[in-house]
Amino acid sequence: MVDKSKVIICRCNDVTQKDIEDLIDQGITDIEMIKRITHIGMGPCQGRTCIPLVAAIIARKTGKSYDEIGIPPTRIPTQPVQMRILVGDDDEE
């Protein structure tokens, strides 16, 4: 048996499979709410790794289709950008 508390689903915010499944067991099956409670999809990787994994766990545990589960919106910037680049100071120092 795999220890689900050791299976990392979100590397950015250190969320395990157990964290996700515990929420689903409590009745929290909306990926938007799971995102807000655990911060999956909100780290530097923008959910590239965790969102498909969380969607798969929800689908497996609840029988919801991927269409029903949906995908939370991706926020810009799609990759982290340093503020010095945004202010045009990238040549400094």
Partner: peptide, 25 residues
């Protein structure tokens, strides 16, 4: 907004220049 936020934040704390913004909404 992204540009203005960066301009103003880095005036208040210059070291924030080295910090990356990851989400805007």
């Amino acid at each position: 907004f992204l540009r203005e936020v960066s301009k103003n934040f880095t005036r208040i704390i210059p070291a924030l220049k080295h910090i990356s913004i990851i989400r805007q909404w």
